[in-house]
Amino acid sequence: MAAQPIVPFRTYVLVFVALLVLVALTTGAAFIDLGPFNTVVALGIAFIKMMLVLLFFMHLLHSNKLTHVTAVAAAFWLLLLIGLVFADYTSRGWIPDPAPWSSSAPPTHP
């Protein structure tokens, strides 16, 4: 069998407890006004929870390089999609709208 280390029971329990604490934390944080940081905190905690599940429950910690590459590729491609779509929408306002056309004064060509 491929060397699949058996993770100690204790590790699973610790990770599980940490996950539950994080759920409480993120829910609690929603009741505090942190301004724009509410979103940052919520997504940051979600990221930590995801890493815990990935590394321990999904055994990514003990997986081979190829599995790591697959996981990272998925994340990278998702960011690519979101990132380039946002690149479009966020930069649309960078140019002021041209003056509206008026039929009385046709545009002159140099």
Partner: peptide, 22 residues
């Protein structure tokens, strides 16, 4: 199963916690 769990880990803050509850 863990993957489906991870999706929910992100859905929860995105859908429920967006605007805060204060």
């Amino acid at each position: 199963w863990h993957f489906v769990d991870i999706i929910w880990i992100f859905l929860f803050p995105l859908l429920y916690l967006i605007g805060g509850r204060f």
